[in-house]
Amino acid sequence: MSNPSITVVVPDKKLPGDLAMWFFILAELTVFAIFFIGFSVSEQLNAEMFSLGKAQLHQTAGLINTIALITSSFFVALALTKIHKAQAKQSVLLLLIAKAFAIIYISVKIWEYLSLFEQGITIETNTFFTLYFLITAFHLMHVLLGMVILSFIAHSAWQGKYQNNEFSGFEAGTSYWHMVDLLWIILFPLIYVI
């Protein structure tokens, strides 16, 4: 009696996008980790100043921005599933929706900055606001760069450049955008909640 041979097909584990982009993302995450740890240490050294500073921030604005970035990331994830199904036009539409939510984030962030400036608060006010403006503005720059990348992949998708299982450029762009979201979910409780 011989057993019939059984072939089990195990799908290949594949890293989405380009390897270079993942190293770039790791480098960015490391820089932000230093910022986050530096912020926490400074708060421990200046507890009262940080407590007063946090009380002057607009928590609801922080929550709106969190929802905007998470929703934007969600639409980017959906855009990726559409491009995998060769539905380029739908993918572009989803990327445009994702960018609309990113614009909400940018608008709220600018409104927050202007509100603080009106109260006479600037980057030089104290250590808390120096770190607040430095970290959030650095993150905002990444959001802006992410929007440029999303525009680029949307344009390429519209021109039909992602076909025949060649999605690495698209995947690299979406991975970068999710990194921006990943950073915000640490930044948000650190500055607005705890």
Binding site: K14, P16, L182, P189, I194
Partner: peptide, 29 residues
């Protein structure tokens, strides 16, 4: 407890972004 709770939430949210949005649950270990 607030600090621990908020940072546990960060871990839970991060896992969702890494595994689902970034699709690293299908990436090399």
């Amino acid at each position: 407890l607030t600090i621990i709770g908020a940072l546990v939430i960060v871990v839970l949210k991060g896992q969702q972004i890494v595994d689902i949005f970034m699709e690293l649950n299908n990436a090399p270990k």
